[in-house]
Structure formats: structure tokens, C-alpha cells
Amino acid sequence: MLTRWLEWTAQAPEEVTTAYRHLRFPPLPDLLEPFRGRNLVMIDGAVLANDAQAERILRPLRELQPDLDTLARVPVTAVSRIHLDPEQPVPGDGASELLDALPPSAVGKLIEAAGAESGTSLFSTERLHLGGAAHWVVRRQAVARSPASTRSS
């Protein structure tokens, strides 16, 4: 599924920002039944488009036939809840790095290290696909680092 999401993000318009996560939910009674005790892949995000455009853009993700499809039009006040993070403080630790691409050769290693069969104790591992202004910042940084941008005329 990670490979298909990466292929989709390469073609997604800049009006789209998504997140791909491997999640491991412990079998705790406080968790909602659809999540309790399961290892899941979750894709969420935001699309700045009308309903027809959003449906066309998201169709390839829906073709993956998710167990639970939470992609829907929401008011701006609900955007902070799209990622389904807890609203109250919770203990945690994290690390991040901004990449301009995830090479296909890294996909297998990532699944091996963080996928459902990995045995990792991490609750969540995540990749973000940045659209909009963030998309262009990453692109400009990539161009600035390329050998073609350092040549003099």
C-alpha cells in the first residue's frame, strides 16, 4: 500500500496534503472497537477543491478499499481533527526529517522496520506528503541543491 500511496502522491495536485501511517493499537478497552488491538495503515489528509474535484483526486485512494473511509468534507474548524490525534496531552516522543522524495528502494526497508510484521514497539510511523506552499518550499530547496543550479553561465 505504501508503494501505491507514493505513486499517487507523485501525481497529486498541489492542493492536496496527505499523511500515511502505520499504527499499532494496543488491546485497551478505552480505544474505539475498530482500532483496538489492530495494526493498521491510515491515510488522511486535506484537499482544497470542490466536491467533484476532490472525489476525482481521491478516487485512487478509495480504490484501495479501506476498512474505514474517513475522507469527507469537513468545516475548517474540524481540520485539526483530521489526523485523529488525541485532543488531550499524551506521553510521546518523536523525530522527523524533511525529504524531497522517498526512493522506491527505501519502501521495502521501511515496511521491514515499521510494518505490521516488524515487531516494532513504535505506536506510529508516518510519512507526510506536503502540498500547497510547503510543496513549493521543498521543490525550491531541491532545485537549489541540484548541480544544474550551481553552474555558472
Rank of each mutant, 00 (worst) to 15 (best):
L32S: 11
P104M: 12
D51C: 01
N39A: 14
T120K: 04
A46L: 10
A133P: 12
F25E: 14
S105R: 08
L71R: 01
G37C: 15
E33G: 02
A49R: 02
P29G: 03
R62D: 09
D69I: 01
P86Q: 05
M42H: 15
Q88Y: 14
D67M: 07
T150N: 10
H129A: 10
D93Y: 12
G108F: 01
E87Y: 01
L2I: 03
E55L: 07
G131E: 01
R127T: 12
F123C: 06
T77W: 10
V41Y: 11
V79I: 14
L6E: 08
A133S: 11
Q65M: 11
D100W: 06
L71Q: 08
T120C: 04
N50P: 09
T18E: 07
E14M: 08
L58N: 06
L71K: 05
A116Q: 11
M42R: 14
A134S: 07
T3S: 15
P147L: 12
L64Q: 04
T9K: 02
G94P: 05
L130Y: 13
E33N: 06
R21Y: 08
W5G: 15
R73A: 13
P147G: 03
E63I: 10
Q11E: 02
R81C: 02
L28S: 02
E87A: 14
A95N: 06
G108N: 10
W136V: 12
A148L: 07
I57L: 00
R59Q: 14
A116C: 11
F35D: 09
L128M: 05
L84P: 11
A101V: 14
G45D: 09
L2R: 02
E15Q: 04
G132L: 08
T3D: 15
V90K: 05
V90H: 00
T3R: 15
V137A: 03
I43D: 04
P26V: 05
V41N: 08
F25P: 05
V74C: 09
V137P: 00
E97V: 12
G37I: 12
R127L: 12
G119R: 03
R127D: 00
D100R: 04
A10C: 02
A106G: 13
E15R: 10
A95Q: 13
G115W: 04
R24F: 13
R139D: 06
P27A: 00
A10T: 14
V47S: 00
A19I: 13
D85H: 13
E117C: 10
R127I: 07
R145I: 02
P147D: 09
L23E: 11
S118E: 07
A95V: 10
A19L: 12
A113I: 06
L28M: 09
T9L: 00
S153M: 11
E33T: 03
L64N: 05
L84Q: 11
E112Y: 01
T77V: 08
T70S: 03
R4M: 08
T3H: 15
A95Y: 14
P60A: 06
M1L: 03
E33A: 00
L48C: 04
R81E: 13
L31M: 12
P91K: 02
R21P: 02
I43H: 12
L58E: 03
R151L: 10
E126Q: 15
T150V: 14
R56V: 07
V143F: 10
V137G: 04
D93I: 06
L6F: 03
R151H: 10
R62W: 07
P103S: 08
